[in-house]
Structure formats: structure tokens, C-alpha cells
């Protein structure tokens, strides 16, 4: 094992055009996500907005944050955090969705007797 190669940090210089290209793509996607709000997709509007946000975030993480070339461990660490948040949100919604029957003020459902 060459001692020197192992001793120096692993460097990956991202090509200039790639960085600028990703930046341009992110701006385009911002336009798209604004544009989509003018189209009525029903409940899908939220899904589409979030999907676009996920795509944008993925590009930032892969290229700006170098995850594409980094040690996989760092990506695993980051994904674990996201998984944890998703778990938290899903279980909390699952529960609150059950007991939040109607929280509209002055319109609490009357109980028939």
C-alpha cells in the first residue's frame, strides 16, 4: 500500500460546467414548482410539490455536497436522519389523524342521542 496515497485526503474536484448546470437545473425546477400550483391536480398538488423538492434536494446533496463521490458512509448517515424524520412524521400523522375528528371552532360535531 503506497503510504502517501493513503495518507492524503481523497479529492474530487467537480467540473465547473457540472456545478453551473446543476445550479441552472435547480432554478428551472423552482420555476416548475411555482408553475404547477396554477394547475389543479387535487390532492396531487402537494405530492408534486414535494416530489420536485426532493429532486432538487437530491441534486444539491449529490453534486454540491459531493455525496456522489464521497464515502458511502456519509450518505448512509444522512439517509438515516431522513428515514428517522419520515418515521416520526408518519407515525404522528397516523395517530393524530385518528383522534382529530373535527377541530373547527364553533362547529364541534353534535352527538345525537
Amino acid at each position: 500500500m503506497e503510504n502517501h496515497a493513503a495518507a492524503e485526503p481523497h479529492v474530487h474536484v467537480v467540473p465547473l460546467r457540472l456545478l453551473l448546470g446543476v445550479g441552472a437545473l435547480l432554478i428551472v425546477l423552482t420555476g416548475v414548482t411555482v408553475g404547477v400550483t396554477y394547475v389543479d391536480l387535487g390532492r396531487l398538488n402537494v405530492v408534486v410539490a414535494l416530489a420536485i423538492a426532493v429532486v432538487k434536494a437530491t441534486f444539491v446533496a449529490l453534486y454540491f455536497m459531493h455525496l456522489r463521490w464521497d464515502r458511502p458512509l456519509n450518505a448512509v448517515v444522512f439517509l438515516t436522519a431522513l428515514g428517522c424524520v419520515v418515521l416520526f412524521v408518519l407515525l404522528a400523522i397516523l395517530d393524530t389523524g385518528q383522534y382529530h375528528t373535527d377541530r373547527i371552532p364553533d362547529h364541534a360535531p353534535a352527538v345525537h342521542r
Binding site: 428517522c84 418515521l87 407515525l91 397516523l94 395517530d95 385518528q98 383522534y99
Partner: peptide, 21 residues
């Protein structure tokens, strides 16, 4: 440890569905 927090809430208004899980 991240999957069991709801067992502190069995009697405090948590829904039966979540209680079971």
C-alpha cells in the same frame, strides 16, 4: 428504541390504532 415511543401515551388520548401498533 425509535419505534416504541407511543407506549408512554397509552392512556393519554392516543388513538387505539396507534396503541395497538
Amino acid at each position: 428504541s425509535f419505534l416504541v415511543w407511543g407506549h408512554h401515551m397509552f392512556t393519554s388520548g392516543q388513538s387505539p390504532l396507534a396503541n395497538t401498533i
